[in-house]
Write a protein that binds this DNA or RNA. Sequence first.
DNA 1: CCAAAAAACAACACCGTTGTTGATTTTGTA
DNA 2: TACAAAATCAACAACGGTGTTGTTTTTTGG
Lengths: 227, 227
Amino acid sequence: MAKSPPPPIVPRRRDAEANHAALLKAARTLMAENGPEAFTVSEVAHRAGVNRTTAYQHFRTREDLIGAVLAELSNETSLMLKAKLPRSQLIDHMTDYFLDHPEIARLWMFQMLLDIQLPSREGWNRYMKAMRNMAASEQAQAGIDPEMLGHILVAAILVWSLQARNGPEGAAGAKKASRRFTKELKRLLLFGAFKPEAWPDLYAAVRAPNASKRNTSKPNKPSKMKI
Amino acid sequence: MAKSPPPPIVPRRRDAEANHAALLKAARTLMAENGPEAFTVSEVAHRAGVNRTTAYQHFRTREDLIGAVLAELSNETSLMLKAKLPRSQLIDHMTDYFLDHPEIARLWMFQMLLDIQLPSREGWNRYMKAMRNMAASEQAQAGIDPEMLGHILVAAILVWSLQARNGPEGAAGAKKASRRFTKELKRLLLFGAFKPEAWPDLYAAVRAPNASKRNTSKPNKPSKMKI
DNA sequence: CCAAAAAACAACACCGTTGTTGATTTTGTA
DNA sequence: TACAAAATCAACAACGGTGTTGTTTTTTGG
């Protein structure tokens, strides 16, 4: 009763924290490898260099372990998306990030597939908001559909980060190949890929969407072009 | 010995073929649902409306069943990619195809993830060849990197087809949302998204790749553009 | 009606995984 | 040295999956 300062010194005899972290990391690796459900506690414990029963001392059940990994993942991606960067480096940054953290990219894709749903909806919302702002700005072309463009970009980058290592040079060439990738992505964003005059039907589909809308943006543009 | 025409009539008492097909279909559905490894023979048999032991009469082991599904899948996607269509419908066609066959899209993504590798490398090669031809043609802009553009497109379409059903209107609105998607994709291919003059750094990265290259393709092009 | 194919059914052995329990050992701190 | 947290270890029950076997039932072509 007389003791006013209850010593906040947490007794940490053997390194419980380190083991906890090792277990989380091992679990994450395995989950990213074959899918978030395709692992056994034994495997995780073994990879963490820890006894199986020790794992059960840190996580009551296998499901708890999965949940912990997913929560951790959600935090990290949230942080990544929060980073403020020069806009011109955004594409490189995201591509590099996923390239450097393949487990995150893979787990994200698995989540998307199994659709427990996209991890960290806040992150996704922030991303989409940025897309809308960009589309509304002076720096963007008119007529962009920001949500759809957002889908296109994130899909391309995510999937690329998974494929990059499959090239002829393997993981070694991944970085180099990725520069090729981001360059083409930037090129596409700046200029597109087709010559509009050579694709009158596409042009029509894009410019006169459903019913013949109001003729903004010069409907005769394609007619004068020749291939 | 006297019988010259040995009757080629295959005795098919109870409908073995139908069951075989039902098993394949059930397996494919389940594999697409939770991943190509995440199913049990019992589940498959149950969904196929067939006894578990009957399943083992059609496929010696679980692995055989998986193999059969994957082979079937490979054939179908190969066929899809072989279809000759007006080029302007290609994007819609691919998007619709995956939208109408979600199991195929999902299985494909799972394969890509687990990277047993891309199903049907021939299909992929044919696709990349088409991209190269397109890039080399008069209808395309100069300076395209066909392989990378190919990656971008297929990733965007595949992932979209998985996401389409997650919209607010669910599966019902998927078709409508997909038209939004393909429209934006076409728009992007025709015009890009950014105003090059507003992104000088991107422009520099794209036009003067590593060392300052030869100034082909009018480097002043972006300066005169407005919307 | 008969014979044979195809399916259903029940029972089994085997294995790996989960989660628990209780006893035992290591190790840092006081 | 003594205490106690943390990790190890062995053993166990319960469960569910795979693959097999032998038997029985249904169906259908001849």
